[in-house]
Simulated assay, not measured.
Amino acid sequence: MGKLLWHRILATIPVLFLVSILAFSLVQLVPGDPAVTLAGDSPSDDQIAAIRTQLGLDQPLIQQFVSWLGSVFTGDFGVSLFTSQPVNEAIMQRLPATLSLVVGALVVAVLIGLPLGIIAGSQRGRWPDRIASLISSVSLAAPSYVIGLVLIIVFATKLDILPPSGYVPIEDGIGLWLQQLVLPSLALGLVPAAILARQIRSALIGVMAQDYTRTARAKGLPGRVVLLKHALKNAAIPGVTALGTQMAVVIGSTVLVEQIFGIQGLGDLAYNAALQRDIPVIQGVVLVCAVAVQFINLGVDVMYGWLNPKLRRA
């Protein structure tokens, strides 16, 4: 397992380097000149030139990239062009809310998707399978922001049992923290839950038809033991793959969900920075999200090694 983990960690280095190039290139890709935006209305050429010199935009691109990358390695993501707040400080202030959302979506996906997939795969062609498949299809048909709006209308406006927006830090009380996270976590987690359910169902049907599961049933083992001990562990590998991929999508979806639920997280920070063309903030958020995705992929690889011992020697 240690060898597998070490290889995967080394493989993330070139990926993160490519992401850093992409994040730095945002300066060139975003329309407009940050210096002109900062200069205000009707700036003179001298004012714009002075701001470009202050930001280092008058230097060659390679020199700008090397200087920026060196600062990133020391934990310095720069300063916001509009608030003058250090970017790493702004990210650390917003990170707990987004992290709570992503973890909440993961919990929703596992608690809903895994049982649905097991029920559908073990009851193939029967009414539990049809109901589970229907629930999965409905969840896949609506994007997360639509699900979020429906949840607000039903549970916050009509039933008035959950808050429609906002975020409470966990240090202010676990109960309040969980209460605020229920609706946005459902909005983010239902689509991954549906995809996980479908993957588990498909893999479980295939595994249950294998010779070793038939042999286990022929020996008189209870169906529940065959399902949970012999079949599910092998069927879980495609589900882990799907869930890891969807968690990367969830991180991107937080931009919309945080806007809908009024949560000041990384998605909200990136959205406002994009509107203001605040390049250092955008670069910092992109890098943090890229590192988070790499950690998710690393977790998926560890799960592979646990589920399939053969991969530990790969």
Score class of each variant (00 low, 15 high):
Ala231Gly: 02
Ile153Phe: 14
Gly189Phe: 03
Gly125Asn: 08
Arg313Ala: 10
Val207Asp: 08
Ile118Thr: 05
Asp211Phe: 08
Ser80Trp: 10
Leu287Gly: 03
Gly2Thr: 12
Gln93Val: 13
Leu275Trp: 11
Ala39Met: 13
Ile118Val: 13
Leu95Ser: 02
Pro86Met: 02
Ala216Phe: 03
Leu183Asp: 06
His7Glu: 10
Leu311Glu: 02
Ala105Asn: 09
Gly2His: 13
Gln199Met: 11
Gly220Val: 06
Val250Met: 01
Asp58Met: 11
Ile279Tyr: 08
Gly121Pro: 02
Asp129Glu: 05
Gly175Trp: 15
Ile200Leu: 08
Thr245Trp: 03
Gly267Ser: 07
Ile260Ser: 01
Thr12Gly: 12
Ala209Trp: 00
Gly148Asn: 01
Ala270Pro: 09
Ser20Ala: 15
Ala218Val: 06
Val286Phe: 05
Thr37Glu: 14
Phe261Ala: 04
Lys3Val: 13
Thr53Leu: 13
Gln210Lys: 15
Gly206Arg: 08
Gln93Pro: 00
Lys219Cys: 07
Leu256Ala: 09
Ser122Val: 15
Pro309Cys: 13
Leu266Phe: 05
His7Ser: 12
Ser185Leu: 07
Gly125Arg: 07
Val191Tyr: 13
Ala187Ile: 12
Ile13Lys: 03
Gly284Lys: 06
Gln93Tyr: 01
Gln276Leu: 12
Ala248Val: 15
Leu140Met: 11
Arg217Glu: 11
Leu116Ile: 10
Ser67Asp: 14
Ile263Asn: 00
Pro280Gly: 08
Leu149Phe: 13
Asp278Pro: 06
Glu89Asn: 07
Ile112Asn: 00
Ser165Asp: 02
Arg8Pro: 00
Gln283Glu: 09
Asp211Pro: 03
Ile131Phe: 15
Pro96Trp: 05
Val182Pro: 14
Asn88Trp: 15
Phe73Gly: 11
Met1His: 08
Ile260Tyr: 02
Leu116Asp: 05
Ala203Asp: 04
Val302Glu: 07
Gly78Met: 08
Asn234Ala: 07
Val293Asn: 02
Leu134Thr: 10
Ser144Trp: 00
Val27Lys: 11
Asp301Ile: 02
Leu275Arg: 11
Lys310Ile: 08
Val108Met: 14
Leu178Pro: 05
Gln246Thr: 06
Ala49Cys: 02
Val255Tyr: 02
Leu4Lys: 14
Gln54Ile: 00
Val281Phe: 04
Gly173Arg: 10
Trp127Ile: 14
Ala314Thr: 08
Ala187Leu: 13
Gly299Arg: 05
Gln123Phe: 08
Thr245Arg: 02
Leu269Phe: 11
Leu183Asn: 04
Ser253Trp: 03
Gly220Ser: 10
Asp76Glu: 12
Thr254Leu: 01
Phe155Trp: 10
Gly262Phe: 09
Gln294Ile: 10
Ser133Met: 12
Asp278Thr: 07
Arg94Leu: 06
Gly220Lys: 10
Ala218Glu: 06
Leu29His: 08
Leu101Glu: 00
Trp6Gly: 14
Thr12Pro: 01
Leu188Val: 04
Leu38Asp: 00
Gln264Arg: 12
Val250Trp: 00
Tyr271Trp: 11
